[in-house]
Design a binder for these strands. Structure first.
Lengths: 395, 395
DNA sequence: CGGCTTTGTCTTCTAAGAGGAGAAAGTTTG
DNA sequence: CAAACTTTCTCCTCTTAGAAGACAAAGCCG
């Protein structure tokens, strides 16, 4: 297995990240930014070309003098992002600059276990390869819907992933793909996606709240993922919002997830349909035979009062938890993402209303709370960013 | 004003911190730790001696060869820690190794405003000077009971400190003492104190929960204070624990502080005394004319059931909030400090019970929750640590 | 075409720091 | 007590990273 070359020093690392984040540059511009003498810069760039990470990209138009030599990341670099959700798998391939070249997905229940699920993921990679998008893979990032020991690359006691505990995800995939692999929690990777391409590019400390099948939170401190002592930081789905709430899968009562999540919305919509409180849901149930959070989004869009009330109520609960976390963490930005982004501004308005009322003015005075603009791509993009940061670092 | 010399490069910084944290060392031992050639090490140490930061301290006993030259931080280094609490001021002086040489305090209400309070603090410094403990002051750290713009060294919209908003604390004290000064939130400094001398020495990520007149939390990420976007991180006193709770000074209802804090305990003790529910408190009230949190501690020690119930109830509330924060932050250690440490193990048992029940097992599995062992000194010690880190850094 | 500007390459020079050779100052052993 | 061995410290040399400047190449404009 031929491992891709890695940069050899901190200068090469800086140059690679600059080319990744800001795109192709002339040698002169690079010198201005990294503050290296032109001679030293030339040495390092030549070395990167030799390693196959960087390539010349022709001459720029003259700006009144000699035309400058443009360099860019090698066009042959390929990174894979794999986002394993509770009910679906997304796989994307990007070039070195993290531009998405192809993106495929399929429904898949994570409960089917690591063997089945990872095989599906590899099939999706094969599909992309079949489209001619991949030659050699230089690295892959994988997100899984549960806590991860980042150092070891294995899930640890994941509640919704029976059979995955300590399964060597990194090792297996690294073997199969023949490249370096990193594994992290899917919500952390969504947060990294926002850091790379979303609204969080300028925020040093921010929170990404993902509301999907469950509820989780990615924490970014100083531009880097904060994972906590055992990799379970951001696990906010089971924070108590009310003593007398519904019983959660975790055994406690009143967990946020039991009040508001994809699963809880589907449950409540079904109840509303069966009890006859909502004609909208009753009709949907009859048509489809089942209800999901997507039906709730449609209900809100159609103005169904029961649906709107459900989302308002849920937004209030999320807002209560978020208000506490914002008091504690004082982030510079909060991004709401995940499947329920479709619930859109009704949800956002309710969350904002609670947070701005319940958190200290100093913490909320300059705090944007926004919906993610990345949609499905946040997870896979974050995965490629994670592995890119890794392979663009000196060993 | 003669500013103290600062180290000139990263090697000198490392050497100074090593001498501070590990005590005097021989030149050979230092070389082993910092991985410098003996020649380079000698150059840097000589430079530090020249700057007056380090001094020779004689010869060690032989270990089978030539006797080694011991070096230590200069005996003349003096750092001042000032901890301005809601109702008291503590001032301590330490040597370069942060050993406390003298510690004085006085009651003082922070509401009297910065002019009065800072004058009192300077008086306390004068008192220490009068004891012959101080020659030249090399730096001072100041903690105040509210949010601070750390970069500017000024309090920002502090709720319980009218008149302090944007008062130039750092500038004024730096002028008066003739040395570098840093200002921070008092809870952050307590956390730093624990990092330096307490149980948190080995924990990279931990929380210090201070329960005093109010409730606050110091957040340490990777061994460094996390302050958030606007310096208000850790402001957990106004997190909601119940919709139908007592009204808080902040205007909301059900804040943690309104349930459990020095002020809330005093209020509840008074109510218990007046209503005749507790003979213990009634008697104390008659003797002293007023009740404080200290009386509650005494009641618990004496086994008064009303007092015990108050603390249990309060511990439950603190535990609820803490359970959420631990789910979110996944710290490696939680230290409980502040005035209510006197409530001791009744409080701790209740907090632990709630947290271990309500937080995910992965986050609590390996999580010690302990009482601070530093008492009054945590704040002033953290203040000297803060300024020590600063003046022991290359500019 | 000649002067001016920008870019890239090559050579020279400096300073940081590693590493080794002793000198200095001990202890231990015969 | 002398010789052998250890540990510490100092001095000197050698390597290397990197800056700085000279110069060549390649464009613009009048």
């Amino acid at each position: 297995m031929r491992m891709t070359a890695r940069p050899e020093n901190v200068h090469q690392t800086r140059l690679l990240r600059l080319l990744r984040d800001e795109g192709a540059r002339s040698r002169a511009e690079l010198g201005d930014v990294v503050h290296l003498s032109r001679s030293k810069l030339a040495v390092e760039l030549d070395r990167l070309v030799e390693l196959g990470l960087v390539e010349p990209a022709g001459l720029a138009a003259s700006r009144g003098g000699r035309r400058s030599n443009i360099v860019r990341l090698s066009r042959h670099l390929r990174l894979i992002g794999i986002d394993i959700g509770a009910t679906s798998i997304d796989v994307a391939v990007t070039d070195g600059g993290l531009e998405i070249l192809g993106h495929v997905s399929m429904p898949c229940n994570v409960r089917e276990g690591p063997d089945v699920v990872l095989d599906h993921a590899l099939d999706l990679v094969g599909k992309l390869r079949g489209q001619g998008l991949i030659d050699e893979i230089h690295g892959a990032g994988i997100g899984v819907p549960g806590p991860v020991s980042f150092r070891e690359g294995v899930p640890v006691v994941p509640p919704i992933m029976p059979g995955w505990d300590r399964f060597p995800v990194r090792e297996v995939i690294s073997q199969k793909l023949g490249c370096p692999v990193l594994v992290d929690n899917d919500v952390n990777l969504m947060a990294l996606g926002e850091v790379h391409a979303g609204l969080a590019r300028s925020a040093e400390d921010f929170l990404l709240v993902k509301i999907g099948t469950g509820v989780g939170c990615g924490i970014v401190v100083d531009g880097r993922i904060y994972r906590g002592m055992s990799g379970s930081a951001g696990d906010i789905g089971h924070i108590r919002v009310d003593d007398n709430g519904p019983t959660c899968v975790c055994g406690n009562t009143g967990c946020l997830e039991a009040y508001f999540s994809g699963a809880a919305l589907a449950r409540d919509a079904l109840a509303a349909a069966r009890s006859g409180r909502s004609a909208f849901f009753a009709q949907r149930l009859e048509q489809a035979g089942a209800l999901t959070a997507l039906d709730v989004a449609d209900a809100v869009a159609a103005g169904d009062p029961v649906g709107v009330r459900m989302v308002r109520e849920g937004g209030r609960r999320v807002g209560q938890v978020l208000a506490g976390l914002i008091s504690f963490f004082n982030p510079g930005l909060v991004v709401i993402g995940g499947g329920v982004a479709g619930l859109g501004h009704v949800l956002l308005a309710e969350i904002r209303s609670v947070v701005y009322r319940r958190s200290p003015p100093l913490a909320t005075g300059n705090l944007p709370i926004v919906l993610s603009e990345l949609g499905d791509t946040a997870g896979v993009l974050g995965a490629t960013r994670l592995i890119s940061d890794h392979i663009f670092s000196a060993t």
